[in-house]
Design a protein around this nucleic acid. Sequence first.
DNA 1: TAAGATTGAGTCATCAATCTTT
DNA 2: AAAGATTGATGACTCAATCTTA
Lengths: 168, 168
Amino acid sequence: VTIDEVTDEVDSIVAGWRCVLPDVNVSPLQILSRVTRLAKHLDRLRTDVFAHHELESWTFDVLSSLRRSSPPHEMSAGELVTATLVTSGTMTHRIDTLVERGLATRRASPSDARVVLVRLTPRGRRRVDAALSELATREEELVSVLNGPHQEALAELLRSLLASFAER
Amino acid sequence: VTIDEVTDEVDSIVAGWRCVLPDVNVSPLQILSRVTRLAKHLDRLRTDVFAHHELESWTFDVLSSLRRSSPPHEMSAGELVTATLVTSGTMTHRIDTLVERGLATRRASPSDARVVLVRLTPRGRRRVDAALSELATREEELVSVLNGPHQEALAELLRSLLASFAER
DNA sequence: TAAGATTGAGTCATCAATCTTT
DNA sequence: AAAGATTGATGACTCAATCTTA
């Protein structure tokens, strides 16, 4: 690793740290810094795509959880909280917005009045399906810079890394 | 891919979509959804680590850019904007905070009074060095679930993916 | 007129306190 | 009490408008 050209923003970040703090092992950044940057780009891509369908990333998050649940596509607010990794206060607000827009309905659970059940409307279903479809197409283009085996290898490596997080 | 067990949250998300929308190719999610989730976990890890050093992720972002710049560790506000991928308004506020805390100084450029120069203080330097050192240790543990060659392979695959984003 | 930084309005997030039902 | 959802305060972000200097 001596005469490599600097080809990447991450490479220069790593090189910068090595120069300044030579005793610290910054090689994990070669992976983790790229993960962070990729995630930022992906976030932008999603924002763009969803805007074509009058959705935001955060509304899509909720709608897509509902969509993947078995018909009648209904989940409790608490289930949505754990599925989307946000706080309960955030979820209350998200549901407010979705109901206002006619993309979901909210009702008290008949069996336990503390529980709020959120259900996808037909309009919400059409909206989220169209958005996902376009998103998948765009993501396919991106991933296509890697051939099939490379894609699978990458998915597997990421799975291992993710699993090591989940253990904690 | 018929009798695989569902081992992962991402696997079940992908399986969910395949069931609901079988005509959409959701295999890119095997990669990109894991990237997003990894980034979320990383964000939490960084928040934790930086809290030990009385820093937040966003203050660290700025301080680390300054730290990697050549002595006297001074950059213009505009350079910091491009380095950290935030808007200029955000950067103004970040600089305010860093100056208040004595981690950086702000002055007008002598050669062009429109330009604001931000410089790391010794206190800021010690703070960011300590934070990076701990972060690197924690990230090393995480990445260590993969052996050396796997780490390199992963870094290379991510580099390709990132490059394909940068082209757009 | 343009470049660079700042300000202010609006959005969505978190956290902690509260209300309701069990 | 405890579980679930809501409310309100606060924080950091973006965008657009503004101010200052070149």
